[in-house]
């Protein structure tokens, strides 16, 4: 079932989707980014690291097909290929669900490493959907990452938590611990962006957020009813009907794989913005 070949010869890239704060859109973003990569023919798996609070399967719409999970694999009760669920819509997309009944102590660093190493051989992209917080589960989700997407809302507590997470990415990860390793490449994904509230001065602007976090911007996802609708029906945003949110995620995916796409705010291209933002954070 995982016989499809990966597109690239090199080992797969591990990307953690993290935020510190809960409710900012990590799981929605993991599903959308994973589906977006898979749509481009890249073999992609999305892993749910939120042990005990399984949600990725609901957002991806495969909750009724979960037999074995990540924890079964780590504990040797199932083979990895038995636990991987292949998406019914995009055949290069897979989900590795977590357990709803165990607790986070079931994750071990060695176990996570073994699973990720096996997945690197099979997949182009491994997307790790981190739990909220900065405790063990979140630290394990980021530990082996090559890149990080820090999901942030334009709001003070979210920005502060993101800053804290950026600090952990630079200090509590494998790449931080290894002498001479390139540090994790971290980018900010602004979600729940509400232009009207920003214009009224109720929310922080993109410039404000980037100035504080001092890392590149991966994309700006507008607050959109399409996001809620997509999770209601269990379809990743980018596989649902086109919307400003799905366009924003598609653009973010393009940037993630190294394409240069001009920044779009609320569906409109903002030619000047990208240059200004990247000029600042380069």
């Amino acid at each position: 079932m995982t016989s499809q070949l990966k597109k690239e010869d090199s080992v797969g890239k591990v990307i953690v989707i993290t935020s510190g704060k809960g409710g900012v859109g990590k799981t929605t973003s993991s599903a959308a980014i994973g589906a977006g990569l898979a749509k481009r023919g890249l073999k992609t798996v999305v892993i749910d690291f939120d042990v005990g609070l399984r949600n990725l399967d609901m957002i991806m719409g495969c909750e009724r097909r979960v037999v074995y999970d990540f924890i079964n694999v780590i504990q040797g009760e199932a083979k990895l290929k038995q636990a991987l669920i292949r998406d019914k819509r995009v055949d290069t997309l897979y989900v590795l669900p977590t357990s709803q009944t165990r607790d986070k102590d079931a994750l071990t660093q060695e176990g996570v490493e073994a699973v990720l190493n096996e997945l690197r051989e099979e997949f182009d992209y491994i997307i790790c959907d981190s739990p909220a917080g900065i405790e063990r589960g979140a630290q394990l989700a980021m530990y082996f990452a090559d890149e990080a997407v820090v999901v942030t809302n334009p709001e003070v507590s979210s920005v502060r938590d993101s800053d804290r997470v950026l600090g952990l990415l630079n200090s509590k990860t494998k790449r931080a611990a290894e002498e001479g390793a390139e540090p994790i490449k971290a980018q900010v994904l602004l979600t729940r962006y509400d232009k009207a509230r920003i214009e009224k001065g109720e929310m922080m602007t993109v410039e404000d957020v980037l100035e504080i976090l001092a890392v590149p911007l991966l994309g700006i996802v507008p607050e959109s009813p399409a996001v809620l609708k997509a999770s209601n029906v269990g379809v990743p945003v980018v596989l649902d009907e086109p919307s400003a949110a799905s366009q924003a995620y598609e653009d973010a995916v393009s940037r993630l794989i190294g394409e240069v796409v001009e920044m779009r705010v609320d569906g409109e291209r903002k030619p000047g913005l990208l240059r200004r933002l990247f000029g600042r954070s380069a």
């Binding site: 909750e63 009724r64 979960v66 037999v67 074995y68 079964n72 009760e77 709803q100 209601n232």
Partner: peptide, 24 residues
């Protein structure tokens, strides 16, 4: 409505204890 239906099915299975823990 779809969301409600999906949750009802899922939670019914989880509450009945027929979670797939016995599968291994």
């Amino acid at each position: 409505q779809t969301a409600k239906n999906r949750l009802q099915i899922l939670l019914a299975h989880e509450r009945s204890g027929s979670t797939p823990d016995y599968l291994p």
